[in-house]
């Protein structure tokens, strides 16, 4: 299962971005291998960033997205791609990942 988190910097201890579509980076964590890597956004300031971010998640086989908020269009595409969306808690990307793996985050 791949878990995605929009982050402000390329660092697992970075803050989670306040938005989804306009995040500069996305942390992708593979729960089977415990590996992670970052995707850099090419559309953070462009049009329809939410839809493009959702498409990026789908194309990278993300199963779970943890985000502070998510627009209506992005959510529709994420749902069509069977991606489960969870609400972030205050803290770093790492904190959120641990809570997600422990099953204590709530659905957005």
């Amino acid at each position: 299962m791949i878990i995605a988190i929009p982050v402000e910097q390329k660092d697992p201890d970075a803050c989670v971005s306040s938005t989804f579509g306009r995040s500069g980076y996305f942390l992708l964590f593979d729960s089977q291998t415990n590996d992670f890597h970052f995707l850099e956004s090419t559309f953070a300031t462009g049009q329809s960033a939410g839809i493009r971010a959702a498409q990026l998640m789908i194309d990278n086989h993300v199963g779970v997205l943890i985000t502070n908020r998510c627009g209506e269009n992005a959510m529709r595409l994420l749902s069509a791609g069977n991606i489960q969306v969870y609400q972030t808690i205050a803290g770093s990307a790492r904190d959120n990942l641990e809570r997600c793996l422990a099953g204590t985050l709530s659905r957005l």
Binding site: Q47, S48, I51, Q55, I58, N73, L77, A80, G81, N82
Partner: peptide
Amino acid sequence: AFHALGYAGGQVIVFDNL
């Protein structure tokens, strides 16, 4: 160019208003 189309779950999704 307006990202009015997405592809998810094996089908094209149309965002009418975009």
